[in-house]
Structure formats: C-alpha cells, structure tokens
C-alpha cells in the first residue's frame, strides 16, 4: 500500500507538489491522472526517495520513505519512463541483475525464469536488448519491475509510445498482478487508459489532488455523464490531457 500525506515539493520556482494526499490500496490499480506538469513524476520520484519532500511524507507499506529509504524501496518495483535498458545485456542477464539488486538472494534463476515465462519472453530472453522493438523493451522493463515480486508496483506513463498490441498485453498483465493482490500505482495523462484500467483515479493538477475515486464516483461528483467531461471540469482545462 502506498500512502502520500500532504506532500509538498518546490523545484526551482515551480511548486511541483502542493500538499498532495492520496493512497493506493493493495489489490487495486490506482491511476495518477493529470496534465503534463501536474506533478505526477515529481510525486513518483519522491516515492523512491530520489527527491526529498519539503513537507509531508510518503509511506510504502507503512514505512516512511525518507526515514528508511532502502527498506521502503525494497517494497517497490519501478517501471520507469523511459525504460533505460542496458543494451548490451540480454533480458535474462538484465532481469537477473535487477533481481539481485532488489535483494532476491535465493533461487534467482528460478525467479528470472518464471518472470520470463509470465511475460512470454523466452524467445527473446537471450538476445541482447539492442535492437528490441518497443513491445519487447516494455516487457523487459516490466519484467525487472516485478521479478522480485514487490508488493507495490509503480509505473510511470507505462503506455507511452507503445503500440496497440503491447498496450493490451500490458493491461492484461496489470490486471493479473492486481488479482494477485499487488498494489499498482501508475501515472498517466491518457484518460482512456485510466478509465479502462483503474479502480481508483487520483486527478492531479498543479501539485494537488483535485479529486479521487473510482471513474464512476468522479462522474457523479462532477455531475458529468462522461469521464472526459468530468476531468475537464476538475482540472479546469483540457490542456495536456490526451483522450
């Protein structure tokens, strides 16, 4: 479970986070939706202790990130944007490496093999990542995020640049992980994706959570029939949001 309490962060002249509050429950997919510049990435970085908040705190499975960063990070898996793969390693080596760094100490090969199987990657497992398609890269990135079976999985703009097939595959994987009881948090500026996947949506604008709830609740709350209209009303503009 991920909880963010009253998180504020100023970067330069911009108040990137401004008293952000939300929580993402286990066994649910939580979407962080907001236009570009709303503070989604800053929020995620704070979660990984890459940024120190000016105020407030983030908790991962009740561990305060800023106080015990290593322990907190041990409960997280990150699907980054961009992926940042090592081109000269094969997915098997890469995932193995990430598993080790994430603290898997025993039966690493087995964990790696299972992950590869889960993502249907056996055919590309022993080819260097160089020259991979976007979909293959996505799978590799996701594999490293989940190889150590973290309770919480964070995805930063996961579908950006993915083709339709890859997006579908990713969705089904996320649903599967949700079913296994993981807490899944992802940031996106793509409404459709959020509405299709999320159990809960946190709508962000200017560093604040302007609304949270299930897509249905949000419609209700704003009195709009479609989610799209609801967003526009919540954010105050439709700038930076993709349909």
């Amino acid at each position: 479970m991920i909880v963010v309490e009253n998180l504020s962060k100023r970067i330069g002249r911009v108040q990137a986070l401004d008293g952000l509050n939300f929580s993402a429950e286990d066994g649910a997919i939580t979407g962080l939706l907001g236009p570009n510049g709303a503070g989604k990435t800053t929020c995620l970085r704070t979660l990984f202790n890459l940024l120190a908040p000016d105020q407030g705190r983030a908790l991962v499975d009740d561990i305060v990130v800023a106080e015990q960063p290593l322990a907190a990070k041990g409960h997280l898996g990150l699907f980054p944007d961009p992926f940042g793969l090592y081109e000269r390693l094969t997915p098997r080596e890469y995932i193995h490496y990430m598993a080790e760094l994430n603290g898997v100490n025993e039966a690493i090969d087995k964990a790696v093999q299972e992950t590869l199987a889960l993502l249907n990657m056996e055919d590309i497992a022993d080819r260097p990542c160089k020259g991979f398609s976007q979909g293959q890269r996505m799978k590799t990135a996701l594999a490293q995020a989940i190889v150590h079976r973290p309770k919480n999985i964070v995805l930063d703009e996961p579908t950006r640049g993915l083709d339709v097939m890859s997006t579908r595959k990713l969705r089904s994987l996320l649903l599967e992980l949700k079913a296994q009881g993981h807490c899944i948090l992802f940031s996106s500026h793509v409404m459709q994706e959020v509405s299709a996947l999320c159990d809960r949506v946190v709508v962000m604008a200017k560093g604040k959570a302007v609304a949270q709830g299930s897509p249905g609740q949000l419609c209700e709350q704003t009195g709009q029939s479609s989610l799209e209209e609801a967003f526009i009303q919540l954010i105050g503009s439709d700038e930076g949001i993709a349909a």
Binding site: R45, F48, L50, L70, A71, K73, G74, L76, L78, P80, P82, F83, G84, L85, Y86, E87, M98, L101, N102, G103
Partner: peptide, 14 residues
C-alpha cells in the same frame, strides 16, 4: 544518457 541512472538509484541499494 540512457536513462538508467534514475532507475539504479530507485533500487534498494546504497
């Protein structure tokens, strides 16, 4: 440049 630095620093390692 490859964007793997942030990921590395996000891992539970010192």
């Amino acid at each position: 440049e490859r964007n793997s630095l942030a990921l590395m620093l996000s891992l539970p390692i010192r």
